[in-house]
Amino acid sequence: MALELDRVAADRSIPSRLAPGIVTLLSLAGLLAIWWIAAIVADSRVLPAPPAVAEAFWRDARTGELFFHLAMTLMRVAGAFVIAMAVGSAIGIVLGMNREANRFFDPWLILFLNVPALVIIVLAYIWFGLNEAAAIGAIAVNKIPNAVVTLREGARALDRDLEEMAKVYRFGPAKTLRHVILPQLQPYFAAASRSGISLIWKIALVVELLGRSNGVGFQINLYFQLFDVAAILAYTLAFVAVMLIIEFLLVQPFEAHSTRWRPRRARG
C-alpha cells in the first residue's frame, strides 16, 4: 500500500510533495464549509454556524470553566484507560497462553462484551454509590473485555521459536517478558489503545451525565437542558481536539519509537 502511494507520489511532481498536509487541511476546510452552508440554509437555533460555536467556546474558556471540565473528563479517561489496559492485557495474555483457562472464561468474556455500557454504569452507581471510584471503575469495566480480546489474539500469535531461543539462553521470566513477549504484543497494545481511547471517552461522558457534577458530559447535559447547541458543539470539539493532540504528541511518537526496528516500507 505504502509502496503504491510512494510510486504515485513520485509520478506526480511538486504539488504531490506537499500533499499530505494540504489534503488534510482542504478536507477539514471542506467539512467546515458544508457545516457553515447548512447552518445558513437552516437558519435555526438548533444548528448554529461556526462563529456561534467559537463564541460559546470563548465564553466558557475565558472563565476557565471549560478547561476545568475538560481536565475532569481527561482525568477520568486517563484513569480508566490505565486500569482497563493493565487489567485487560494481563487477563488477555493469560487467556491467550492457557487453553484451559480460555475455555473456562470465554463465556464470561462473551457475557461482559455484550452487557450494555449503560447497564454497567447504572449498576456501578447503585452498588458503589455516586462517587469517583464507581465512575472510573464503570468506564474501565466497559473497556476491559475489548482489551482482553485483542491481547488474547496477540498472545496466541506469539512466536514459539523465539520462546525456545529465550529458554535455551536462559533469559528468565523478566527478561523474556521484556525483550521477547512484550515487543511481539506491541501492535496489539497499539490496536487496543487506539480503539480504547475513543471508546473510553465516549463512555466517560455518559458516566458524567448520569452521576457526576462536573466534566464534559455533565456540561453537555446542562446545555442540553438549556437547549444551547452551540455550547454542546463547543465542548465536543474542544474535547476532540484534546484527544487529537494526545494522539499526535503521545500515541504516534511512541508508536514510531517502538516500531523503529521495522523495515521502512512496513511502517505505512
Binding site: 521459536d161 525456545e164 531461543m165 539462553y169 533469559f171 521477547v180 515487543p183 526496528w261
Partner: peptide, 22 residues
C-alpha cells in the same frame, strides 16, 4: 548455546543487543 536452523534473532533488538541479551 544453540544455533538454530533459522537465526531466531529478536527483530526489535539490534545485533549487539541480541548477542548481549544472551
Amino acid at each position: 548455546a544453540a544455533v538454530f536452523q533459522e537465526p531466531r534473532l529478536l527483530p526489535w533488538r539490534s545485533v549487539e543487543e541480541n548477542v548481549r541479551l544472551a
